[in-house]
Nucleic acid binder design. Structure first.
Lengths: 161, 161
DNA sequence: TCCTGATAGTTGTATCAACAACTTATCCCG
DNA sequence: CGGGATAAGTTGTTGATACAACTATCAGGA
């Protein structure tokens, strides 16, 4: 088995990407925990709901949009429900299914939280790049997604405010 | 508080980057768990050791290079030690400190594991990009790191083969 | 010398995510 | 109109990480 190792350019790029992969999630998570008492994943769940018509989604649809397994989502939704941010209701027409909807407090929470999160994204990512780099980044990430998520189960309708 | 929301270009780039942030670690982790029974973090620990002179490092130095807290590293090293991949020894000259070194089995493990991991990185990242994009990516990641890790505590001596 | 503060690590606890097992309901085909 | 197969969620258990508390050692100054 002979290995195609990375050349200098490739390694420089990968090493830096790996560092971003390691550090950036922690930075975003920390701000949300501190300022809103939310995990990044919990924030993302609320955000996806807020962008759906009526602020409600079927559990399995929500799981697909957030790239979560159903068990994971179930636990998280239960806790969000305990905190009064979402409400669960039996889905009309299919007795197996459950619909999740933002409560009034949930709407308030996401409206209050989004600006700080966007500011964080701006500070640490968007504003660090030139307009040309922004477009390059879109192309690069798109190309990588073509490999790791070929049928766009996840990234399809992503729209983080 | 008026918010500077993201425009279309910015959002396109961020949404895709966020998707990569969400999916890529899982892909890399899965391959290592399946083929080597190692967490990505455990692999990274072994890799950092393998690139140090003598294959040994002080605990705190290893923690810095892997961006881990000392408690986290302590737990992981204990388990790697139980599996016979590393050995802990009192550091000469400072009775507080601990040196961690790869065992012969540890060397074997990292040599066997590296090719598959590099292949994975190639398949999902490097080979998805043009040479121009490789260089763009290095620049973009570098710029982001300038914001999230200004004094390069982490990315300094990163050298993932 | 001795005392204070800082450094290096370990251990224990609570939180979060992955996986497996289970319940209930729906679909579809004979 | 059964009945097996699939789908939707929930619950329980395990493994992993963050955080806090603790022990032991070193460094430096009164």
């Amino acid at each position: 088995m002979d290995v195609r190792w990375l050349d200098d350019h490739e390694r420089a790029a990968w090493v830096r990407l790996a560092a971003v992969l390691e550090l950036l999630p922690g930075v975003l998570d920390a701000q949300l925990r501190r300022d809103a008492g939310l995990t990044h994943f919990e924030y993302f769940v609320l955000a996806m709901l807020s962008e759906s018509p009526e602020g409600a989604l079927r559990m399995s649809a929500l799981a697909a949009q957030t790239n979560a397994t159903l068990p994971r989502l179930s636990h998280v939704v239960r806790k969000l429900s305990d905190r009064g941010l979402v409400r669960r209701s039996a889905a009309p027409g299919d007795a197996r299914a459950t619909d999740v909807a933002l409560t009034e407090e949930g709407w308030t929470k996401i409206r209050e939280t989004a600006p700080g999160h966007v500011a964080q994204v701006r500070r640490h990512v968007v504003d660090a790049l030139t307009p040309a780099q922004i477009d390059q980044l879109a192309g690069i990430a798109e190309a990588i997604l073509g490999r790791i998520d070929p049928d766009r189960r996840f990234a399809a309708n992503l729209r983080e405010s």
